[in-house]
Write a protein that binds this DNA or RNA. Structure first.
Lengths: 257, 257
DNA sequence: TTATCATTGTTTAATACCAACACAATAAAG
DNA sequence: CTTTATTGTGTTGGTATTAAACAATGATAA
């Protein structure tokens, strides 16, 4: 489905955005990628204040919130058809930009709807690093990947939102498969293990890990090895799309028997 | 903390509520209780349309969303200091009351802010059945418990919200202790097992269940038995408050080793 | 008063599962 | 060809889970 919406310039946006968007409500996306054995997230930098923040968005008055999240993700990455996981809604009283920002931010006046208090809906997404084309929006000067453990101080409570997203992702690992979205189509067992270790932030046993993920029944081993490394060449694997999706629906763990 | 807020009558509420509350945003509480071996939830009935719905509320412009949820819970049950678990935010385009409702609902006019499209934040809570004093609000004629499997058709997407809340609660059982909020102070092992079976909607093995919950290390067996039953009198237990809270914080399960 | 009943409390056995370890196979580098 | 670091696979011992056996007990009814 093609999403076509009005594009506002920053002045129009600051002054009349509340004609198009739900007031007091926003969404923020924590977009995870994986590259060079490092977990990364996509951050945006404000044009005038140079502050960093999560890529966020607003919800058109006649738009589903999940659709709005997908639209936001698409705008920053160019990607489509990505699973977005809503994980928490943040509604503290501190979620409001200060009046002093109007002095710094071009075109923003003291009565802008953006200076009101906002409740924000948090989503996270897993995307394939190499497929992303980071794109700043009208209000930002830069959009780029940051290593998860080098993220700077972000505006408002965005560092807290990131923390909660990471925690939600870690919880998710126990119940749902992961990797299809973060890895290239063909990958090795060490690649997958490294991904898990990075997200969970701990070392896993190589041999038991292999047994566990194979037991999930969502992997297919190819008759190919990844050559070029300094040592024994590991097999390449790919996900079985059907079984992967089934596991995404039904989950991998089960409760008390 | 005592919450003191303006009380509006229904006419004022319909006409000027948006002066006090965040527009387009609401919250809904799925309040679980347990009685006669049945899982129950608290529902509210609209005065004029006789439709049933989840007890919901709105968020004052200078109020934290979690505080608003606690206030709503308190208004319907009289209870304080209850853990409220936010589980999902619902933002479909169908979340809007029809214009025809103005004909049925007294004092509601066609331009009421309540007829706009709403995004709602879902919370669930576990409460002790016997301590609740169900109290309708200004707009509702009835407030009472319903067995979870006898819940009628609710307004908008409230049946779906309930379903998601139940699922979230079931997931929660795997990772966090439960029961302190739903059972009286002293209870038997069969009581606790019955609670788990009801929520999970499946039978559990009596002996293994006992071992499992005792292994959690949050129960204390009293030198008392529950007499009056037709057969062997079971021991009474109570929760160790400190250990229970620790388990609530840290969880009971751990991820991949 | 006593046998019966249904349920509870505890123990034990069979099974599945998992962390930890051992060792052979192998691609690249020298 | 030998060395090296890593990968692929198998084994082991311990732990957790499931399942079953059996004794204990409070109420009920003969």
């Amino acid at each position: 489905m093609k999403i076509s919406r009005i594009e506002l310039n920053s002045e129009q946006f600051f002054e009349t955005g509340d004609k198009y968007f739900l007031p007091h409500l926003s969404l923020d996306c924590v977009i995870f990628g994986f590259h060079d054995n490092q977990l990364k997230i996509l951050l945006l930098q404000w044009k005038d204040t140079f502050e960093w923040c999560l890529p966020g968005g607003f919800i058109y008055k006649d738009e589903n919130i999940d659709t709005a999240a997908a639209r936001t993700l698409n705008s920053r990455t160019g990607l489509d058809q990505i699973h977005l996981q809503q994980f928490h809604t943040f509604g503290g009283l501190d979620r409001q930009r200060g009046k002093e920002d109007t002095k710094k931010i071009k075109n923003m006046k003291g009565n802008s709807w953006l200076l009101e208090r906002f409740v924000t809906i948090g989503y996270w997404a897993l995307v394939e690093f190499s497929k992303v084309v980071p794109s700043p929006d009208e209000l930002s000067s830069d959009c780029r990947w940051w290593n998860i453990d080098e993220v700077p101080t972000l505006i408002l409570d965005h560092n807290n939102i990131l923390l909660k997203a990471l925690h939600s992702l870690q919880q998710n690992l126990n119940d749902y498969p992961i990797g299809k979205e973060l890895l290239p189509v063909k990958f090795t067992m060490p690649d997958l293990q490294s991904l898990y270790e990075t997200i969970l932030n701990k070392k896993l046993d190589r041999r038991n890990f292999q047994k566990k993920v194979l037991a999930m029944g969502i992997l297919e081993r190819l008759n190919e090895r990844k050559l070029g490394g300094a040592h024994k060449a590991p097999f390449l694997y790919k996900f079985n799309a059907k079984k992967y999706q089934k596991a995404m629906r039904d989950g991998l763990r089960f409760g008390l028997s």
